[in-house]
Amino acid sequence: MQVIIAGSPGEVASLAADRIERLLARHKAAVLGLATGSTPIALYQELIARYHRNQLSFREVTTFNLDEYVGLAPEHPQSYRTFMQRQLFDRIDIDPRNTHIPNGQHCPTEEAAAYETRIRSLGGIDLQVLGLGRNGHIGFNEPCSSLHSRTRIKTLAEATVRDNSRFFEPGEFMPKLAITMGIATILEARQILLLATGSAKAEAVRTMVEGPLSASCPASALQQHPNTLVIVDSEAGSQLSQCEYHRRVKIETDRLMDAERSRP
């Protein structure tokens, strides 16, 4: 696990977009795993800007989102399908047929199994984007989720329901269940890119990076992945005990990559 401590949320988004741009430069038909929530929005805005500058094309890209609420139609204003259309898909050149999000109105158990099959049929995910919940969840894998879990139905923790309630009108149906990729599914991605910003995520970042591998912090499972990049801003990284070391790692890694790119 490499940790980069960026100076601002904008730099977090830019560094994450750099990683995706490098992947698409060598693999135009990459399979991307995408996340919803407030943190990835700045990344999606940066990708859209690069698309409009002709730096990126998503014409051959396939995407799989992490999760979707159970009980919301895809066209519901608060569904993750609507979120992704609004924040990214409608603003780039991706083929709509190549964008996959669980359908929360289908039989959830059957939909979860079918989603796993679709991911495998396309050879798996090349790069998975993740956010981080304040309680350490990734996707909707709440604390105490099995580290060997696959795509399935999860009951949302009360803290998650409270955090997400701001997106719903008073009295509006608020889902308590979701279909989510499991932790084992996430760990099968060839690269993982986790983003976190703001002081509210600082404790979760510290526990994920420096704490024990534990189901009480699902994101700690990323310690087992051979190619995970964690990009946080200074506030989200404020509780890390090895900040100077993480900065040194970035400097030396950048030097190594520059040297490799300059070789004939």
Rank of each mutant, 00 (worst) to 15 (best):
R150C: 13
A25L: 11
A73I: 05
E21M: 11
E116H: 12
I101A: 03
V70T: 07
L88S: 05
Y44E: 02
P226T: 10
R91T: 02
A114T: 09
Q87H: 14
E260F: 10
T228F: 02
H148K: 15
I186P: 00
R59N: 09
R162S: 12
P226W: 03
G139Y: 12
R162D: 11
E75L: 05
I94N: 03
S262T: 12
G171I: 13
D126S: 08
L66D: 02
Q191R: 14
K176F: 07
E111A: 11
L47W: 00
C243G: 12
T151G: 14
S149V: 08
F64Q: 04
Y245C: 10
F58W: 06
K250E: 13
A259M: 12
L177N: 08
K201N: 06
N65W: 06
A178D: 02
A29P: 03
Y44F: 08
D233F: 05
P108Y: 04
L156H: 02
E68C: 07
E75T: 11
G33H: 02
S238P: 06
P9L: 07
I186G: 02
D254K: 12
R248Y: 07
A157H: 13
N141D: 10
Q242V: 09
T160V: 13
Q87T: 13
L23Y: 07
E11I: 11
A113Y: 09
V161H: 04
K201E: 05
R255L: 15
A49E: 08
E235P: 10
A221S: 15
R59G: 07
R120S: 15
K154Y: 07
L213M: 09
I186K: 03
H106M: 15
E75Q: 13
R81T: 08
E75Y: 09
I192L: 14
T99E: 09
G133R: 03
V232K: 01
D258W: 04
D126W: 01
I4D: 00
R134H: 11
H27M: 12
R91Q: 13
A35C: 06
E21R: 14
N65K: 10
A157S: 15
T151W: 07
H76V: 06
D258R: 15
A259S: 14
T197P: 08
A73Y: 06
Y245N: 12
P218S: 11
R22S: 15
I92S: 03
A204M: 06
A16P: 00
N103S: 12
L72M: 09
S79L: 05
M84G: 01
S165N: 10
A13W: 00
L72H: 06
A215F: 05
E68R: 03
P143T: 07
L32A: 07
D95T: 07
D18K: 10
S238L: 09
T63H: 01
D95A: 10
R53Q: 15
R248K: 13
R81H: 13
S214V: 08
I41M: 01
S79G: 06
S145W: 11
L132T: 05
I138E: 02
V232P: 01
T151L: 11
C217V: 13
Y115N: 09
I138D: 03
V129A: 00
L147K: 06
F83E: 00
F89E: 01
E46Q: 12
L15C: 07
L177Q: 15
V249W: 03
S121W: 03
A25N: 14
Q55H: 12
K154D: 03
I192W: 01
R206I: 09
A219D: 08
D95F: 04
T207D: 14
E260I: 14
H52A: 11
A42W: 00
R206C: 11
A29V: 04
T39G: 00
F89L: 13
